[in-house]
């Protein structure tokens, strides 16, 4: 694999629609991390960007069989690895 297309520290918010990545870290406060974990956001899990709302609105992502929307500010705190 080429080092250029492998970035372990990409924020989720920067991914394009349709990208599938792997969750590597969650940098939120404990309360939100817990909520995200309960929604299926766990290290090593694949996550897909389904769509983004207009006007910098929330992004819709799919983790496992669950669809979740979150704001860009929260998505920026979730670190992913793209392959």
């Amino acid at each position: 694999m080429n080092a250029n297309d492998f970035n372990p520290h990409t924020p989720l918010s920067s991914l394009a629609i349709g990208t599938v990545a792997t969750i590597t870290d969650i940098h939120t406060d404990d309360a939100l991390r817990q909520r995200l974990q309960a929604l299926g956001f766990r290290m090593g899990k694949p996550i897909e960007i389904i769509r983004k709302a207009r006007f910098n609105g929330p992004v819709q992502v799919r983790v496992g069989t669950t669809d979740v929307m979150l704001r860009l500010s929260e998505a920026a705190k979730i670190e992913v690895r793209t392959a």
């Binding site: 939120t28 939100l32 929604l39 669950t66 669809d67 979740v68 929307m69 704001r71 929260e74």
Partner: peptide, 8 residues
């Protein structure tokens, strides 16, 4: 407040 919500 963070905004995180499920889409059923």
């Amino acid at each position: 407040e963070p905004f995180v919500l499920e889409l059923p």
